[in-house]
Amino acid sequence: MTTYHLRGFTLIEMVISIVIMAVLAVIAAPRFLNLQQDSKQATVEGVSAALASSLKLAESRIIIDNATQSIDYAGENISLTGNMPAASADTLRALLHIDVPSSWTRNWWEDPCDEPEFCILGNMYVGKGNYVEVPGFPLDSNGGLDRASYIWPRGYTLQSEGCYAFYINKASAEVYHTGAIVSGC
């Protein structure tokens, strides 16, 4: 005859197990909950990196062609301002090979982007209605010679401390800047 000894968990073992799981949940849960924010930041930073690479290629095309008005970039015509790609929505579309939204809103500071992936805004300058200043890259008020363009993801509005990639054509100094603002993602 076989004898079985059934032994369960003691109350102390159960309490310790629950405490350990609670500590793990407190430490691990915020990590998993921030994945959506991290993914939006990574998306915007990826767009910024792609834009920077495309601008370098366009810069090479400008030098090779000795262009002053426009260049052919992968079959797309890109206008130049200050010997650099113009800061327009068409420029972003051509450099990144994406479509300019067909139903974008002029209320980009109030209404979230509702396009499939991104919204694009170009040709913004100091003095133009609802111009969005990029932190660390203020433009001079020089009659709109220096301009900025932006690309931001679905569900977000365009704001200075927002979630977007940018391209600034500082034609007055013949330099450009590109980057990402992800503090609002």
Rank of each mutant, 00 (worst) to 15 (best):
N130I: 06
N130A: 10
S54K: 08
V126S: 06
D114Y: 08
G46L: 02
H5C: 11
L145T: 12
F137A: 02
E174N: 11
K40V: 15
A94D: 09
G162F: 03
L92H: 02
G129E: 15
C119M: 04
A148L: 05
F9K: 03
S79Y: 14
Y150M: 01
I12N: 12
A49V: 11
Y156P: 01
A171N: 02
H5R: 15
L35P: 10
P135Y: 00
V19N: 03
Y125K: 07
W152Q: 00
Q159C: 06
N66F: 06
D72F: 07
S60A: 13
L92R: 03
V47G: 06
H177I: 04
G127Y: 10
M21H: 10
F137Y: 12
K56P: 06
S172L: 00
A58K: 07
E45K: 13
D140S: 15
A22V: 12
V126E: 06
A165G: 01
L33K: 10
I98Q: 04
G155N: 02
D38I: 14
L24D: 04
A148M: 06
D90W: 09
I62L: 04
M124S: 15
R154A: 11
E117G: 13
V15I: 13
L95E: 04
Q36K: 15
S103N: 15
S172E: 07
A50N: 15
L57N: 15
H5D: 13
F32K: 08
I64M: 11
D114N: 13
I98M: 08
T178S: 02
I168F: 00
I181S: 07
A173Y: 12
V175S: 08
F166I: 01
E115P: 02
M14F: 13
C113Y: 03
V126A: 05
A58D: 05
P135W: 00
L57S: 15
T91G: 03
L158G: 07
P101L: 04
L95W: 03
V126K: 09
E45A: 00
L35K: 14
G127I: 09
E13K: 06
F137H: 13
I64C: 04
Y131C: 03
E45W: 08
L158S: 06
L57M: 14
Q69Y: 13
